[in-house]
């Protein structure tokens, strides 16, 4: 418990220090937020282009699709805020040797890697997602209030799933000599948890629900709010999946760090 408190205080401090430094260059930060928003707007446009012409898609109404998409931005945005170092971990930490410094501090190495820098502008995605959900809710007749109330918490679980999956992929760079890492290709797959999972066939559903469980991060969490009884078991499984993948991730990082200790690279 003391360790949790220590890390929570440290996280707050890391975040505050980083935000302070980042906001010191206001114009630059504004440009970053704008770029980030353009990206979100572009990927949102894909959904609007495709689905706005159909009143229904595979049993989903247009507002429901917007709700799904809007929600998917919440865990994704949270993940983006903390994932900037995972993205080029192999390069920045292993090749350039910064990982040594991480190991010299009495703080969890994974914690340091995740929270040493933030992509603050990605909070924009969380805001955009919230707005989209708001719009969708105003057009949907009966959204479950409990489902809505749990959304933020489930978004955090979703973010934990994303962080864990990319943490696992990043940890592979302890073994695989590869400057770029495995994360970029899988990154592309994140967007597919954003569409109704019912449009895919069994293979894809299985993939998105097991090996790369992105459906648990961005699709199943909406089941309660949208009253999709058939997915409720998955909805309640989201916290379990998040914890399981987080533990897996921590375990793999332990192994990876042990390996780093024996190979030094």
């Amino acid at each position: 418990m003391r360790r949790v408190r220590f890390h929570a205080r440290l996280l707050a401090l890391y975040f505050a220090q980083y935000a302070k430094a980042r906001l010191a260059y206001r114009a630059d930060f504004a440009a970053a937020v704008l770029a980030s928003f353009l990206g979100t707007a572009a990927s949102f446009s894909v959904v609007l282009l495709l689905f706005s012409r159909f009143p229904h898609l595979a049993g989903w109404t247009y507002p429901e699709i917007v709700f799904l998409y809007g929600f998917s931005l919440l865990p994704y945005g949270l993940f983006s805020v903390v994932s900037s170092n995972l993205w080029d971990f192999a390069d920045r930490y292993l090749v350039e040797g910064r990982f040594d410094r991480i190991l010299l501090r009495p703080v969890s190495p994974l914690f340091q890697v995740l929270f040493e820098s933030f992509r603050l502008e990605s909070l924009q995605e969380v805001a955009t997602g919230a707005v989209a959900i708001g719009w969708a809710v105003s057009r949907l007749p009966d959204v479950s209030p409990l489902g809505l109330a749990l959304l933020p918490l489930w978004a955090v679980f979703g973010a934990v799933i994303y962080v864990s999956v990319f943490g696992l992929l990043t940890a592979a760079s302890f073994w695989v000599e590869d400057r770029v890492g495995l994360a970029p290709p899988v990154f592309n797959l994140m967007s597919f948890g954003r569409y109704p999972i019912t449009i895919y066939d069994l293979k894809v559903k299985l993939l998105l629900s097991t090996v790369i469980p992105f459906a648990f991060a961005s699709f199943y969490p909406t089941a309660l709010a949208l009253g999709r009884g058939e997915f409720l078991p998955y909805f309640w499984a989201v916290p379990l999946v998040a914890v399981a993948f987080a533990l897996l991730n921590v375990a793999l990082w332990r192994r990876g760090i042990a390996r780093y200790g024996s190979t030094g690279s």
């Binding site: 630059d28 980030s36 990206g39 979100t40 572009a42 990927s43 502008e121």
Partner: peptide
């Protein structure tokens, strides 16, 4: 800008 990766990521989404 200082967030090169952020700009590039936005570029991918816009170009896609």
């Amino acid at each position: 800008t200082t967030s090169i990766l952020g700009v590039l990521r936005a570029k991918y989404l816009v170009l896609e």
